[in-house]
Simulated scan of single mutants.
Amino acid sequence: MPTSTPDPRHASVSASLTQAVLHAAGRLGVDRASLLAGCDLTESQLVDPDARLPFATQEAMWQQLSRLPHSEPGLALGLNLAPGPFSVLGYLLQSSATLGDALAAGLRYQRLVGEGGELHRHEQGEEVHLLYRPLHPNLPATRTRVLALMANWVQMVTPLLHDFRPLRAQFVHAQPTDLGPYTEVFACPLQFSAPEYGLVLPKALLAAPLIQANSPLQSLLRQHAEALLARLPSEGLSARVVTLLGEQLAHGEPDRSELARALNLSERTLQRRLAEEGSSYQQLLNDTRRQLAEHHLSSGTLPAAEIALLLGYSEPSVFFRAFRQWTGLTPGEYRSQQQGKG
């Protein structure tokens, strides 16, 4: 479950990502000083890797880079983007135990890198769809920016797995004349004029162990990432709790004390701050479970007993009682009602 989308007017990106883009452009022969001047940036704004810059500033940089003399500038830049300069998130992904864990961390902490769009994960049968929804999708520079990010995803993950092969890559724009750069980067079937940008992976790959897994480092990085996330505006504590609940539910009954620790809060402080936002832990847990239950029942064929396990219930009967309290219907009745609407 992704985090809440920030106000586009106040969207920001990390200085570390901006540095990475500048380095990639430099490898392609772009003059750094001219690029900085063209988007009204100074070197002093980039000294702290955790500093934030207005997204509009970096978007102006992408606009310049979209004019590079390459058949697909975004892919050329993506091949030269190094994950290290992305600061804490890059290292967090690399040290994850499995690809599934890395994707969960990517979804949880994506705002640390930038707010120029939002990554979503959807499962369809034996496929996992990683979809990227950019701000300002109709701007010409957006194609360059998103292609650079997608190419970087592949560059980052490939060395971490013994056999990383996407099932397909999809792009919003029409099929270009030169497919060479695409086949070189993605090495999989390509779909153009698609509804959204994204990569499709085999679901079985989520359990694949990562070569650089490091649990102690992962714990330290998560603490740092949570502290950085807490500094960012526009996402309330309630939204962060919902995100963590979505992750915990997949592993059983959520643990309030563990969730509070993940947020660097005591349970009492968590309770007080949620109350200040007009919410509570139990209310958010119930709302999250109800939302997920209704989604599974209306859009899939999973048996209700399996849905109960996915929602962290130890017994299906407990889920059935809760669902009837929420909707006045049994899960089976709700599913039939939704199918009837179709």
Rank of each mutant, 00 (worst) to 15 (best):
T5C: 05
D7R: 12
R9M: 12
R9A: 14
H10D: 08
A15S: 14
A15F: 08
L17I: 06
L22C: 01
H23V: 10
A25R: 01
G26C: 03
G29L: 05
V30H: 12
D31I: 00
D31N: 13
A33W: 13
L35Y: 06
L35Q: 07
C39H: 11
D40H: 15
L41V: 10
L41I: 11
T42P: 05
E43A: 06
S44Q: 14
S44P: 02
L46F: 13
D48H: 09
L53Q: 08
A56I: 08
S66Q: 13
H70Q: 13
E72V: 13
L77S: 00
G78F: 01
L79I: 00
L89I: 06
G90M: 07
Y91S: 12
L93P: 05
Q94T: 04
S95I: 01
A97R: 14
D101H: 08
A104C: 08
A105F: 03
A105D: 13
L112G: 03
E118M: 02
H120W: 01
G125K: 05
G125A: 03
G125D: 06
E126F: 03
H129G: 02
P134K: 04
L139I: 00
L139G: 05
L139N: 10
P140L: 04
P140W: 05
P140G: 04
R143M: 07
V146H: 05
L147I: 03
L147W: 02
A148E: 00
M150F: 09
M150V: 12
A151R: 03
N152F: 12
W153M: 06
V157Y: 10
L160S: 00
R165T: 14
P166R: 01
V172T: 13
D178H: 12
P181Q: 04
P181E: 00
Y182E: 03
T183E: 15
T183L: 07
E184I: 12
F186D: 07
F186H: 06
S193D: 15
A194M: 06
A194P: 10
L199H: 07
K203M: 03
K203N: 05
A208N: 07
N214W: 08
L221C: 03
E226S: 15
E226M: 14
L228F: 08
L228C: 10
A230N: 15
P233G: 09
S234H: 14
E235D: 08
V242M: 07
E247N: 10
E247M: 10
E247Y: 07
Q248S: 09
A250C: 04
H251N: 11
D255C: 11
S257Q: 14
S257M: 06
L259C: 10
L263Q: 04
R268L: 13
T269L: 10
R273V: 05
R273A: 12
A275I: 12
E277G: 02
G278T: 06
Y281K: 08
L284G: 05
D287A: 12
R289G: 01
R289A: 02
Q291C: 04
Q291E: 15
L292S: 09
A293V: 01
S298E: 15
S299P: 02
S299Y: 02
G300L: 01
G300K: 02
A304D: 14
I307C: 08
A308S: 14
L309C: 10
E315H: 13
P316E: 01
P316L: 00
P316H: 02
F320L: 03
A322V: 04
R324Y: 11
W326H: 06
P331D: 04
P331C: 06
Y334N: 03
S336V: 11
S336G: 09
Q337I: 02
G340L: 12
K341N: 07
K341R: 15
